[in-house]
Design a protein around this nucleic acid. Structure first.
Lengths: 346, 346
DNA sequence: TTGTACGCGTTATCAT
DNA sequence: ATGATAACGCGTACAA
């Protein structure tokens, strides 16, 4: 076996600096830097020599030094609400994938649905000199967000907002909710309960609107008693159904404003001996990973967290690149599974 | 309203440097640095002057420059397998919480259960000059891990391993599985199927051992036909049960090596018209967030991901501090819910 | 106790 | 096209 001259010192380039590469290849550090960044044109000979030196020495550029010198850290801040959220988690995955492919590293921090915490997150990220910011929904005011965007390219999801250096990616909650309700209506349901998300959340309002719009389009009267408060978590869906049943109000179907509440609702029904879908039809919203394996598999509105993450990341990269992002989230789609069934209209 | 003299220029300290603080307070940059890091003793007057200057200027130290100069970045690499994993996601939350409180920021990267990818993650993190590393289980070989630990304080979960600069946090899979099986046995079940995790995963073997040990302790013969292969995801649990049923083998209970497979198993049973727990008892492993709201609520082995994350982070902080961590994961516990019931021993 | 001066590894600005 | 040289913001010997 032939030994290549000057093999790299293992996969880990201990402390090989750009300057060493420069010396090793007989050029100046500046030239090496240029080659690395494609900043300028260099002669092919030098380029080759440098490339070889890089390979032989196992040189890895130091992002820290880069950040100090160039002002860019090749890192992006991502504010999510809880790192273990079933919905946003998938979005993080999409962000990670796209950013990583572009040489960026995401810095994930959690705001816990709290504007103050989100502000703190931004300080932390800014201190870390991230090149850009992705905010997954959250509670931060539009004004604050715009101010942040003034000095930090920002992508925000879950709201409509136009500002320089800022791009908003909004999912069509209204249409999603309309679709879900429409499906139930088509199956002959007339008494459709709606478990809403908490009012402070921007998505909640639109989903309620979609529900009402579908009802109206079918000439079904809206009943306030069929709208139950929820907070986007399982337990709130469960409580809502318990209250609904206790209220004595008639219903043959439930539309929950997200899957987690739908799961809770399903449990409450189960606990009362009501079967889904034989006794009650159920539709969720989000299409979480668990929806396909719940019992019964949940019919729901697909809102691709993965795609959302990917597009958010691509938008940020565009912003960072001085371009104007033009991405749009895919339209909501009904995913038909086994939690609804047709009934004779009452 | 009284204006405080020289109010900070907004919450965002635009570009205030340590040197500016030094000038503003009439001391040298070195002194400011010392105060910031508690590196040396300083006279109270100077300290006060500096503190005030920091406040007035709204100075925020630049971690990037710090990293370059001091070699510490106050950041820790965390290799998880999938950023959206329901089990490890909770662990990330614990890590984030503890690290954040200590002024560290976690850099989350995903290895996707692939040793090569994990290696790449390590390169990336090393390039980012993280101060330490937490590896959540994963497939990396022990030897590789020890090598990494030579130059980077490391905490690893999911395996036993002793090495300098390395701390391993291992959950008692054997005992957990034994507990689960024992519970079923106590309820009178004798034909207990076991859906195992995939063989490449370190946890799988121990859980199988625990299952067998419990069987043996009760004088119940081990039947290979009751052991189904799985891969720790829902669909594999579903397939396993389908095969089990097709095989004609008798069984009254199922123990799945994790909750996700238990969910899949429950679905397969549901699809065949078998009720849990009336016809078949079911036990999972992990106690995922969803287990409490599955139908029926799943009896399972609690393995606190949150605690695991917290302890991993604390261990790393100890390592970083030159101390020897002495943390141990809490013992596994059976969480009794509604997916099992007693039967007359056959 | 405090200040001076240098270095960390890279990019950017000048020259050439 | 390429090479010096000066930042970038901070930590830390070393000196005082």
């Amino acid at each position: 076996m032939r030994k290549t001259s000057a093999a790299p010192s293992g996969p880990v380039g201990g402390k090989v600096t750009l300057e060493m590469v420069a010396r090793h290849s007989g050029v100046s550090p500046a030239t090496v830097s240029r080659i690395l960044n494609g900043t300028a044109v260099v002669s092919d000979e030098k380029r080759e020599a440098v490339d070889r030196a890089i390979a032989e020495l196992g040189f890895v550029p130091n992002p820290i030094a880069r950040g100090l010198a160039g002002g860019r850290t090749l890192s992006a801040g991502v504010i999510t609400q809880a790192i273990d959220s079933p919905f946003y988690g998938v979005a993080l995955r999409g962000i990670e994938e796209v950013l990583d492919a572009a040489g960026y590293i995401p810095l994930f921090v959690s705001g816990h649905w709290n504007a103050d915490e989100e502000q703190r997150c931004i300080e932390v990220l800014r201190a870390r000199r991230v090149d850009g910011l992705i905010v997954l929904t959250g509670r931060l005011g539009d004004a604050d967000l715009c101010k942040v965007a003034k000095t930090l390219p920002t992508v925000i999801t879950g709201r409509e907002l136009k500002a320089p250096n800022l791009y908003a990616l909004q999912f069509d909650d209204f249409e999603g909710a309309r679709l879900a309700t429409e499906h139930l209506l088509q199956q002959g349901h007339r008494r459709i309960a709606f478990i809403s998300g908490d009012p402070g959340h921007p998505d909640s309002h639109e989903r309620l609107r979609g529900y009402r719009a579908a009802l109206q389009a079918h000439g079904v009267r809206f009943r306030q008693a069929l709208v139950l408060p929820g907070s986007f978590i399982e337990e709130s869906g469960r409580t809502a159904v318990q209250q609904l049943i206790a209220s004595g109000e008639q219903f043959s179907a439930i539309f929950a404003a997200n899957d987690q509440m739908a799961f809770g609702a399903a449990l409450a029904l189960y606990e009362r001996g009501l079967r889904v879908p034989q006794d009650v039809s159920l539709v969720g919203f989000d299409d979480l990973a668990g929806a396909a394996h719940s019992i019964p598999p949940l019919t729901t509105i697909q809102q691709s967290g993965l795609e959302m993450g990917k597009l958010a990341a691509r938008s940020l990269l565009a912003l960072l690149n001085g371009e104007a992002p033009r991405f749009t989230l895919p339209a909501p789609q009904l995913v038909l599974r086994a939690s609804t069934r047709a009934v004779d209209a009452d």
